[in-house]
């Protein structure tokens, strides 16, 4: 014994995939999409620079409290301190980030499968990923209205079905519509991500101990 087990506050999606050696399940995919878009919206609200594209599952962090962020941002989606910052980071449009997130989520669902094999996804999840990865660029005529952004996604417009994804909010609306009660989305998806972190951390700690 005696081996120190490092306490972690966040795990990357790549670490989770590797530790389990299997893909994420569908509920985790919905939850990671929702939570990630929630933190990206929060960044927009604070008028911080846009996030870059998601290049790999290592860019997605699942935090102890169920938050999900991209890159080096903290659990509140805030950029790391320091003048160096990431100002030179390539800036991407909201739709480009969503497309890259959709691709990485799909790959996490497909993890470990051979090239000629394909996982059969439930139609709503396949539709979500299809929407995320086949988007048209917003023409700018639709005002997102930063001041109207709030923590949840429930307002009158949320009763409408999303035909084309143009924003993080649209992704969140589709994820919320997947649940029997849309207003449960923030609490439910946070709980799914919190459980994903906790279960993976348990395995991580166990493996570290037996080493």
């Amino acid at each position: 014994g005696g081996a120190a087990v490092v306490v972690r506050d966040a795990l990357s999606l790549e670490e989770i995939l590797r530790l389990y050696s299997q893909p994420i399940n569908e509920e985790q995919a919905w939850a990671v999409c929702y939570q990630c878009c929630g933190s990206l919206r929060a960044r927009l609200r604070r008028r911080e620079p846009p996030a870059g594209r998601v290049e790999s599952p290592a860019d997605i962090r699942i935090w102890k409290d169920g938050a999900v962020t991209l890159g080096g941002w903290d659990a509140n989606g805030r950029s790391p301190p320091g003048p160096a910052g990431k100002s030179e980071h390539s800036q991407c449009s909201e739709t480009e980030v969503i497309e890259s997130l959709g691709i990485i989520i799909y790959k996490a669902l497909d993890y470990g499968l051979k090239e000629n094999e394909e996982r059969e996804l439930s139609p709503p999840l396949e539709q979500l990923i299809d929407h995320m990865t086949n988007m048209i660029e917003a023409d700018g005529s639709k005002d997102e209205g930063y001041e109207a952004l709030d923590e949840g996604v429930e307002d009158e417009n949320d009763k409408e079905d999303v035909e084309v994804i143009q924003s993080y909010r649209d992704v969140m609306k589709l994820c919320a519509a997947h649940l029997p009660t849309r207003s449960d989305a923030p609490r439910h998806y946070q709980a799914v991500c919190r459980a994903l972190f906790a279960e993976t951390m348990e395995l991580y700690t166990f493996l570290a101990r037996i080493k």
Binding site: P23, I103, E117, E118, R119, E120, E199
Partner: peptide
Amino acid sequence: KGKSIYNIKQKHDSGIKAKISMK
């Protein structure tokens, strides 16, 4: 617990996997 249950099918050239791998 932890074991995902999912079906695997042969990849179709028009399927989502094919579309995503082209991006």
